[in-house]
Design a protein around this nucleic acid. Structure first.
Lengths: 163, 163
DNA sequence: TATTGTTATACTCTATAACTATA
DNA sequence: TATAGTTATAGAGTATAACAATA
């Protein structure tokens, strides 16, 4: 049934023998990032910059902290990114007249153009990777990813932060 | 058909409107890592340590560089990890008598025990996450991950390193 | 006093290169 | 001289805390 080290033979492989999810997801992410970096570089946008453009293309945001949280970043570390995007004319960033502490953030037409150009190039590369899957696998894989990526850490068991 | 900003309404959503894969995979990995860290801490193993144990549980390895490459790490950065694992008695690490430059690496019985205990705990947490998917989605998702995680950077289009 | 954004500091991770020991 | 491993250094990325402006 099992060999000396406790591993099952291929013919008897069960779901149990698979690697941990993280051990599979990590290389996949590495692959995707490797595919994206040259595209981003060609369009002169950083990874965080692209993430910001994507978020703002969904609609404007009233504070930088909100935006930072939306893309899973620290509020202090997107500042440089916002500076770059603003200098490049890809986003607009002005103090809220009603509360001058906050910065109204929105994507510009040029920003939208760049974002979509980048996305189109990335899509093309993703297509090559997803071609390794059957059409049915592709659809299900993407839907599963959408579901799982929408979860928050609070959805983990025992994830209630210690008060 | 599309609203002012070019977004389609939900009822007409097409595959095209999905986020980029990396934008979905990244949060999923974050979630998985958040789930794993407390487990690893409870067993006094680092993430890299666990990765090494997993690799060595597949069988012994003759050089550290080989092991490093197998787990996608730099050969210099697993040294500390190997020190810890060895001190904890979880791996054996001895010079190859035939070529004393190389280090024969293998997992110990205790290492195997720890690795499996960790894996079992991680599996339990993964189960909670995968419960968000239907059984059919689960199976397909895992299989798709297995396929994609097996790809190398060379499988990307235009990935031929410049000579 | 509380909140938003910014800057400064330190800390972690990683990569590069220099070194040792074997061959 | 070439290879495996180690150590040292520096660099990038990130988080923490202090600060300035506004409310």
């Amino acid at each position: 049934m099992t060999d000396r080290t406790g591993r099952r033979r291929d013919s008897e492989r069960r779901d149990d023998d698979r690697r941990d999810l993280a051990a599979m997801v990590h290389p996949v992410l590495r692959l995707l990032v490797a595919a994206e970096l040259p595209v981003l570089a060609a369009h002169d946008v950083s990874m965080w910059g692209y993430s910001v453009l994507t978020a703002l293309d969904e609609g404007p945001v009233r504070t930088q902290a909100t935006l930072a949280e939306a893309i899973g970043a620290d509020k202090t570390r997107i500042i440089g990114t916002l500076d770059e995007l603003q200098d490049a004319g890809l986003i607009s960033r002005t103090p809220d007249p009603n509360d001058r502490r906050a910065r109204l953030l929105s994507i510009t037409d040029e920003g939208r153009r760049v974002r979509r150009a980048v996305r189109s190039d990335i899509r093309a590369k993703e297509k090559h990777l997803l071609a390794r899957l059957t059409p049915a696998e592709r659809t299900t894989f993407v839907r599963a990813l959408e579901k799982l990526s929408a979860l928050s850490p609070d959805d983990l068991p025992d994830a209630q932060g210690l008060p």
